[in-house]
């Protein structure tokens, strides 16, 4: 990731003693663009603007305080980043212009790496989606939906059958995936990208 570009001004000994002391910087450094996470003033505008905060264990504001407090396990095992719907309401209202949904993406990827998520539904969905894209170069809704719902929502299948049939009969779902011509080129790019990501 981009962690090597984070400011190197701290005493290295302190992070040896407790790596969580710099957790906020670590998250900020691993986020695309300039996250501005360090600028958070704990005003709570994000949580107040969030349409799904009622389903979160911690509001975004709490999460940012916890990041600063070095509560790595609590943050990475919370459902907050997985419940974020990427609506960007918080971003346009945040007085400090923190890139909140992008920070949530970083927390998801860190939770997956540390295997700290409690509910596998969301990580599984993302990974199945990505698996399809890496195989075909395009998303494949029928394959994704079948695999995901069978594993995580088998009880919803009977009530969803009419919808699935409706989408199929109205030709809104393909039976077979579409593979791009340059799939090998794409695979080579993604392979190298993963290797680059592994070099911290």
């Amino acid at each position: 990731m981009l962690a090597n570009t984070a400011p190197q001004t701290t005493n290295p000994l302190s992070t040896v003693i407790n790596p969580n002391l710099r957790f906020l910087e670590e998250v900020s450094g691993a986020t695309a663009g300039i996250s501005r996470l360090e600028m958070c003033i704990q005003c709570g505008t994000c949580g107040g603007s969030c349409p799904s905060s009622t389903d979160m264990e911690y509001t975004p504001r709490s999460i940012f305080a916890m990041l600063r407090a070095g509560l790595r396990e609590e943050v990475l095992s919370s459902n907050t980043p997985w419940i974020c719907v990427s609506c960007y309401h918080c971003v346009v209202r945040c007085p400090q212009e923190v890139h909140i949904p992008d920070v949530m993406y970083t927390l998801k990827s860190m939770a997956i790496r540390a295997k700290l998520y409690k509910d596998a539904t969301a990580p599984d969905f993302s990974m199945t989606f990505v698996d399809m894209v890496e195989t075909y170069g395009r998303s494949f809704e029928l394959g994704l939906a079948t695999r995901h719902y069978l594993k995580h929502f088998p009880l919803r299948l009977p009530s969803m059958a009419p919808m699935g049939l409706g989408l199929l009969s109205k030709q809104r779902m393909e039976i077979t995936p579409h593979r791009i011509e340059g799939i090998n080129q794409l695979k080579a790019i993604l392979q190298l990208a993963k290797e680059l990501e592994a070099i911290e």
């Binding site: 695309a32 949530m104 997956i112 990974m127 989606f129 894209v133 791009i180 794409l186 993963k194």
Partner: peptide
């Protein structure tokens, strides 16, 4: 063209998501 990764790839890997 290939899939943009929707809101899924960004939450897994940073460099691969942006490369995609």
């Amino acid at each position: 063209w290939n899939c943009c990764g929707a809101t899924e790839y960004l939450g897994i890997n940073l460099i691969p998501a942006y490369a995609l």
